[in-house]
Design a protein around this nucleic acid. Structure first.
Lengths: 151, 151
DNA sequence: CGCGCTCCTGACCTAAAAGGTCAGGAAAGT
DNA sequence: ACTTTCCTGACCTTTTAGGTCAGGAGCGCG
């Protein structure tokens, strides 16, 4: 139940792309802006490209840009592109697991876990992220007093 | 963003303990009931014991039982016991990360992610799991049509 | 054309985690 | 004493995390 560095990096780089108005942005600039190891970042950007989230051009004046408008790219897409499916259990989707005995209803719990993750990640777009005007589901969750406390 | 086998096993074993009315339950019975490798399970149970979730006695008539009533043990506790803190980013808690530039608001998103996970995992108790009467937050999430679909 | 720039790709690396197994020791009961 | 069951640490294999390195391929410009 953790967020990998890769996913974090990917979203941050994508946010920089979303904020950029002028043409393609070099990997190097993204790496500097977000303090991400350049060569690692380029692998990540490549994955994003393969998933149709980002486009790129080489050569002088080359760089990366979003394949879609920033308000049509969700954080969920980016996380899936680099981490794979969200909230799998033992590497299989929760709806495909058969629970026995007294754990039968655990399936519904994992389904709910996934649904709740989706309800956040699929609502937040890069445009939201850059503008700081986050969807109400996020602001409401982040506004609860305990949300910022460790456990 | 995935649930480990260990966490899944831990919750399932705990559910069996929660359902048991009679005295201590042997590790072997738990392993059989939930189809979990015995020796692996005993390591897990030991961790649960160290976290004060389970108690145990050795010898004939020995076994494991819950340290607290089943309606006071949440799934969140069990997951934390075996997986560590929920929804850490790059192995650090989201409230401790400083985001720069256009990714500044990503922190609130990860905080919301954690809060939403907690809102499910901390509400579900072992008693709920065994009885099948899950909290409304779970049933409502699991009732949304897309919740059972892969993505 | 040639040359530099930047992305693209695969191979490689180290450390840690996931998911277990094995062997033996220590307590509890009978 | 002896069996039963938990307890513990060491060990194992495979995968993942988090990178680095070397070189190739396409793009733009003089």
């Amino acid at each position: 139940m953790r967020v990998s560095a890769k996913a974090d990096y990917a979203v941050r780089a994508a946010a920089e792309l979303a904020a950029a108005e002028e043409g393609p942005i070099k990997g190097e600039r993204l790496a500097e802006a977000q303090d991400i190891p350049l060569q690692f970042l380029e692998h990540i950007l490549l994955e994003l490209k393969h998933h149709g989230i980002v486009r790129a051009r080489r050569g002088a004046k080359g760089g990366y840009w979003l394949a879609k408008p920033a308000d049509e790219v969700t954080v969920a897409e980016i996380v899936r592109a680099v981490e794979g499916p969200i909230a799998h259990v033992q590497s299989t989707p929760p709806e495909a697991i058969e629970y026995r005995g007294n754990a039968e209803h655990l399936q519904e719990v994992w389904i709910a876990v996934r649904a709740s993750l989706r309800s956040v990640l699929e609502e937040v777009t890069l445009a939201d992220l850059v503008s700081g005007e986050l969807p109400s589901v996020v602001t409401e969750l982040a506004a609860t007093p305990d949300a910022w406390l460790a456990r």
